[in-house]
Amino acid sequence: MIRFETIAWHAGAFRLENISFTVPAGRYAVLMGRTGCGKTTLLEILCGLRRPAGGRVFIGERDVTDLPPGERGIGYVPQDGAMFPTMTVREQVGFALAIRQRPPPEIAARVKELSDSLGIAHLLDRRPQHLSGGERQRVALGRALAAKPSVLLLDEPLSALDEELRDDLAALLKRVQREQGLTALHITHSQHEAEQLADVRFRMAAAGVTEVRQP
């Protein structure tokens, strides 16, 4: 479960006030809204990359508002994949375990498991500059899942891909989320993506975040 409780954020003239909503455990939530309305800021507050001016953030029953990003149990996939420029795919996918100083055989086993599941096994020795947009997003997903997070956060992960790839990757996201029982929060502008993926839909506007009930 992800819960935002009366979150506030101020940066110059831009303000978010009193943002409250809950993504139920194990559900795939899609958050939509106009460009610049604060969706990414909200995601970054959940990641711990920005500190809210007020309110609390919960993951499961745990209040994570004051925890550093790495202790929140999240997997984060940004829009452009944000690959680590000098690392191979193998190093990127194993990064979260390497930073936790897990034994090399455990890292290798997890990298193999994820790369097989995401169809990136043939890319393991490549560097980001030799990957296509779709491959980058698969690698970013593998990297985010390596430490077995409970929550997956996706910031327009499909927006830079062509339509065919987008559908393939959307299906992959849904499959991974179901198989691993993850709670997912996915930001997008695409109605089509929301229809493909969403168990729950939210809309963000100046007044706050509201759930969009499907007929």
Binding site: E44, L49, G70, Y76, P78, F84, R100, A147
Partner: peptide, 22 residues
């Protein structure tokens, strides 16, 4: 871009580790 550094932090790095490793 600072984005890879942000991702590294969500994966368990402190800011200093993210700067050093990424």
């Amino acid at each position: 871009s600072s984005r890879p550094e942000d991702v590294a932090m969500t994966l368990g790095c402190t800011r200093a580790q993210a700067v050093w490793r990424v």
